[in-house]
């Protein structure tokens, strides 16, 4: 069996302690929570660190889903399973339940965390696409205090984030608006596989049932999970219809940059970007109209 190279194990019991340890060890250290991306890379010796700082004890502090007026705050150590099981979260953002059903597998979901998913910054990662769709912002804590960045700023490229050495992602915030609906869809070669393409949609309707605002986030079609502003611009003010969704899908298809790989051809992925954009918009609008959020 593959095994990681030697390192020192340390455990943080508070966020302050984690920040202090990260400050002390700098880029020779890495935080570990679920470990499902980090440990396999270390076993392959593609990544080696002198220190691993176990932050699972921070679950009391950073494992939470707080649905508040105008905002949902989710702690970075909230596990996939908690996101999937939360009826309250699904009530506001059903996209989470859609997505969590198709992320990895149930046993991995028992361990993997929201923060770990975002910090891995894999372009195929589903929660990143969800966060992009929902216009989330990320709260990052470091020795100098706390700062908040948008998803667009958070992901700087494949496997690269705004979290600097000595910093820790603590929380992700999602603005809540009236008459919203959201949905997520993923095409995968097999359950538990990374996405061939995934799409998330969030839609907000006005009093007349027109689209007040909409956002689409895609995974696995470019260097990052991508939000597509042109889709939002196109949909705003429109009466929801298949024609409008199709137009949005066409924009998605031409706005993304998929690559041909084992999961599929670039052409197919473009097609899926369109198809899944249409499907998720359709569901999101229906949910918004039914008041399901």
């Amino acid at each position: 069996m593959q095994v990681p190279a030697p390192f020192e194990y340390a455990r943080a019991t508070t966020v302050d302690e984690a920040v202090a340890l990260m400050g002390r060890f700098g880029d020779t250290a890495r935080l570990i929570a679920g470990g499902h991306s980090l440990l396999p890379m270390m076993k392959l010796r593609l990544a080696n660190f002198d220190y691993l700082i176990d932050i699972n004890d921070l679950h009391g502090e950073l494992g939470f889903i707080a649905v508040e007026p105008g905002v949902v705050r989710i702690g970075a150590l909230t596990r996939h399973r908690e996101l999937l099981d939360s009826a309250e979260l699904a009530g506001v953002f059903p996209i989470f339940r859609d997505a969590e059903r198709v992320i990895a597998d149930p046993v991995v979901r028992n361990r993997g965390t929201l923060g770990g998913s975002l910090c891995q910054a894999d372009p195929s990662e589903d929660l990143s696409a969800v966060c992009t769709t929902l216009d989330a912002s990320c709260v990052i804590r470091g020795p100098l205090g706390t700062r908040t960045v948008s998803m667009a700023e958070f992901h700087r490229g494949p496997y690269e984030t705004a979290v600097a050495d000595g910093e820790i992602l603590t929380e992700v915030r999602f603005p809540v608006r009236e008459r919203g609906g959201s949905a997520y869809a993923k095409v995968e070669r097999r359950a538990g596989d990374w996405a061939v393409v995934s799409a998330g949609s969030a839609v907000w309707l006005d009093d007349g049932g027109r689209i007040a605002d909409a956002r689409v986030g895609l995974a696995a079609v470019g260097p990052n999970t991508t939000g597509i502003p042109e889709i939002s611009a196109t949909l705003r003010g429109e009466e929801p219809s298949e024609q409008v969704f199709t137009r949005a899908g066409e924009i998605a298809a031409r706005s993304c940059e998929p690559a041909t790989d084992q999961r599929g051809s670039a052409e197919y992925k473009r097609h899926l970007a369109a198809e899944l954009t249409v499907r998720t918009l359709r569901t999101a609008v229906a949910r918004a109209a039914r008041g399901e959020a």
Binding site: M1, Y9, R11, I32, G34, G35, H36, L39, P40, L52, D54, N56, R81, P106, V107, V108, N110, R111
Partner: peptide, 19 residues
Amino acid sequence: CVVWLDGEPVKSCTVLAAM
């Protein structure tokens, strides 16, 4: 490699003994 950690199934090839 699934075992329980605090009552939840986990994949023990991806958990450090120290954790």
